[in-house]
Nucleic acid binder design. Structure first.
Lengths: 148, 148
DNA sequence: CTGCAACCTCAAGTAAACTTGAGGTCAAGC
DNA sequence: GCTTGACCTCAAGTTTACTTGAGGTTGCAG
């Protein structure tokens, strides 16, 4: 069955449904994150499913991904056609992996920080004194211990 | 006891110890994140404890805080004087709260996402159909459910 | 006391992610 | 059939967080 007229929405509607500014959506189109077709009068018409697509963009952004990374993720979705359930499941799982690894990183950071709260040392400089003969002195004493 | 000469380090040393570029440190000073005193020849001299201070900056940045937020956090530390253990404990705990809340947010996002992977729906549009008569339809269908 | 790495300032450039403004067109309801 | 809100393009501006470059000074090792 062909697309029904209802599946095509103007940019203002997409904006309201996603909470994104119209200018942001146009910018995303420039960056290749969404595609639109044009009416006779040169106005953009988006697929209803682009609401979901832009929702994904927003979530991924909250995770700290740049627009280029997000575009790469979105490449797994069909271009200009409504993605099906399987498409979304695949990409959602990939996002979940991102989230999981971020939680792990934060948890590690928190543990490190906990260890150091006890001695009031953030850079582990002091701790390095206790763990004598460590690699810390050799490598410097930045936050590289706490950070990844 | 007064400061010994050894407690004052030039910017290059601070750079090596923190992994930050010299230019970045100067920029941070402009933004009020660190303070320095000057030699007769107008060169910056930092406290050794500024290594720790800048380590904190880097960790907080990884958490997504902007420099302005970080400056606010750092306001709890004494200006231009070596902070003591208690100072660092207080501020580390505040950072820990940040981390905890970020982990919670991510966990919530993950759970929401899991719920939706099942139906391939990211914006919860489809789920909204199942939960008939919901507030979802009223509020629109952006990712606001998943995002904070 | 000299050489040169390390330091200084200040202006301008960069990248990401948008927004704003000017100047103009489209389309849907009355 | 006209008005008006929604839409269009393109250039320039904004913010954050720095880096780069030019042109000059300092300070320590030998």
């Amino acid at each position: 069955m062909a697309l029904s007229r209802n599946d095509l929405i103007p940019i203002g509607v997409l904006s309201r449904r996603t909470g994104l500014a119209v200018s942001a959506i146009r910018y995303y189109e420039d960056r290749g994150l969404v595609t639109s077709i044009r009416t006779g009068g040169n106005q953009r018409r988006f697929l209803r499913s682009d609401i979901r697509r832009l929702s994904f963009v927003q979530i991924a952004q909250k995770l700290g991904l740049g627009l280029a990374d997000i575009a790469r993720e979105l490449a797994a979705l069909p271009q200009g056609r409504t993605p099906n359930v399987m498409d979304w499941q695949r990409i959602s799982r990939s996002l979940r992996k991102e989230i999981d690894s971020r939680i792990q990183l934060l948890t590690r950071t928190r543990n490190k920080l906990d260890e150091c709260i006890g001695c009031g040392c953030l850079s582990l400089e002091r701790c390095a004194l206790y763990n004598k003969d460590d690699r810390a002195a050799a490598g410097g004493t930045g936050p590289r211990y706490v950070l990844d």
